[in-house]
Design a protein around this nucleic acid. Structure first.
Lengths: 219, 219, 219, 219
DNA sequence: CATGAATGAGGCTTCATTCAT
DNA sequence: AATGAATGAAGCCTCATTCAT
């Protein structure tokens, strides 16, 4: 039993090593400036080996984002499925989940975006393409459900819940991207966390119906 | 006199033709998949000519964003300098300005991110680098001023105004990016506008203090 | 063991094939008119492969001269170290060495000039730069030693020995260059040899003191 | 009369300005690294103008050497034709002439060599090609005549006089090239002069029959 | 399975030359 | 005659991918 299993585990470990290496490089130098040789040497493997685990550079790239997406999906679904929570509590949990998503792979949020451009998706293998689209859709769906519930319960202003989840995600990624491009990420992780915290606070406040009721009249 | 002027104008027109062509291609195929030959042929010029107007591909790329930055700066300063307006009205104007920035060059907002990364700035000519850094700083500064005023007048929650402007910009670009990556850009321009409108509404609501009844009546 | 060694040998053989091809082309068409593709096809390799062995075209060029320099150095040191010989005999041996240097790589003596120009050295890798400077210095030093000895023993006219070695080398390369530029190289190798012989004879005679009768008897 | 003449003179002056500029650049950066634009700007003219005076870059290059060759030829013929002088005195005058040739265009001796390679000559206009070959042949012929006379009068060792003139020229150019590539030229002109002086002294001594008679026996 | 040398297509860039003004 | 912007051919070099060991 042991031998077979160990082989499997070794293989998976290698795959992970490649992903981690690629992640580090893509985030540091960008996708096109990172060469397969760079990645191989960062992973302490040979270039040829990379092709045993990933069809080509594009798929390696996509697989990276897939990892984050999978984690995101799990967390978001978990919050959504927890029927004991009030909508407001769920959003709080959702925000916590986003922090964790960021911590899970701080360097890779950027890549997630380039990927979603359909131009980049075109060349992926059908399997991967489907996986990615599916996960994206499901995650956004779960987030939407949460907001939907809040709207229905009269807590949140009335609007299309998918729009809320889109904006929620855009805000998250926008802030992460901006801080990343200011290169503050490595030096000052907490700075980003504070920015995220404030962003989410503003967003949550803005979403709620009760507080600035009067404003509606003026609009 | 006429001859000199016409030459100047022709030259500027060519420069613009190149920028437009590059913009179209970068937006369609991404920076690294657009070749200089592509761009030249899109602009109906020869490759060599591109290099008469731009030092290299990177600089052409950066110049594109510079255009947007310049427009952004002008608009934002204009709002900021208008001392007749209340802070809230200024934010409304600011939001209008953002719509116009988007309309000014819908395809190129994405590029603005890469610009601030020092990795990308490294290869630019000092002149361009300074221009970009300067405009970025000034624009963010002007937006911050607007929020600062609102904070001082007790309209907005208390926090660092630069953080507000950062988040404001992140939200804007995050939404634009997300919609762009959904490739809905060409077909559903208004869909993006609606998203932006909702985003800004949530942001504005979130920014306001819980019971700013008094101010509200005055607006 | 065998496998490792064979790989090493194969690699070295390839390196040599490239050097030989480059040498042939540089000599025939000159450095700038020989393209990397030319060289690759002459060596029956692909362009990319050239860059596995040499950093760039300049460095390939320099490596060629390095080969000659290394050979020159070995030969010259060997003569210099042979303490059994009289200075005059050493110069004779030195002259023989120069013939062999020429035979070792007849087409490439010209390149040796460009090498010493700091303009050419600038782009080389530090390693290569040091190697070249070192070998040049050592070789000229060894030749100078030989002349120095002759001066001290009163055989040669009194002057700075480094000047003698400079002139000796200049004469050698001047003659080789001139004959090369007359394109007689391929057809009349012996013509060049005769020219060299006469050159060295004149040089040797000119070096000797007017009435060195005594030493002469001893030789 | 004046107008026509002045135009002619202006034209010639411009030609010279181009030649001087090209000379400076070719010597500093080499032929292929000097661009026509470089040359034009050094001459304070436009690139287009260069082509009004020279068919192409190669011919501009050749014209440069032609200038030196013409000067060399004049000086050498002058010495040769002066029937009042003894052969030894003629050689002294010849050496003086070489100094002047060097002074006339110190930077351009190197170019003279590249030119003589028939590969480079091939692309020149027939007119220029003939001029160059003719001048070279005539100059070498004149120098040979001088040595011939010395041989006939029993002053110089017996050998083919053309060989002597070839070696004489090779020595001169070899020394100039070597010092040039050591980059000593600009900083220390006199250093080169001293080297040349010593070279010619050795050469002259080596050429003479009378002094080291004994040596012959030993050879 | 892993390796890493070899490949070769293709990109960026330069620059001699031309030509309309 | 002078200009200098435009051209476009061609060179150097990189790098994703393959394949023999």
């Amino acid at each position: 039993m042991g031998i077979q299993e160990r082989k499997e585990r070794d293989k998976e470990r290698r795959r992970q090593r490649i992903l981690v290496a690629a992640n580090r490089l893509f985030s540091k130098k960008g996708f096109s400036k990172s060469t397969m040789e760079d990645i191989a040497s960062e992973a302490e493997l040979s270039t040829g080996t990379l092709y045993l685990y990933f069809k080509n550079k594009e798929e390696l790239h996509a697989s990276l984002s897939l990892r984050v997406l999978q984690y995101l999906h799990i967390r978001v679904e978990h919050v959504n499925k927890d029927s004991d929570l009030t909508p407001e509590r769920k959003v709080e949990k959702l925000i916590e989940a986003m922090y964790d998503v960021y911590d899970f792979d701080p360097l890779n949020i950027i890549n997630l975006f380039h990927l979603q451009s359909s131009e980049t998706l075109r060349n992926l293998s059908p399997r991967l393409k489907i996986l990615i689209k599916d996960l994206s859709r499901k995650s956004i769906g779960a987030i939407s459900d949460i907001f939907q519930e809040g709207i229905e319960k009269g807590i949140y202003i009335e609007n299309h819940p998918v729009a809320f989840s889109d904006i929620f995600w855009s805000l998250f990624s926008g802030v992460v991207l901006r801080e990343a491009s200011k290169k503050t990420i490595n030096e000052d992780k907490d700075y980003l966390k504070k920015k995220l915290a404030l962003s989410f606070e503003i967003f949550s406040r803005g979403l709620k119906k009760d507080k600035p009721t009067v404003q509606r009249w003026g609009s």
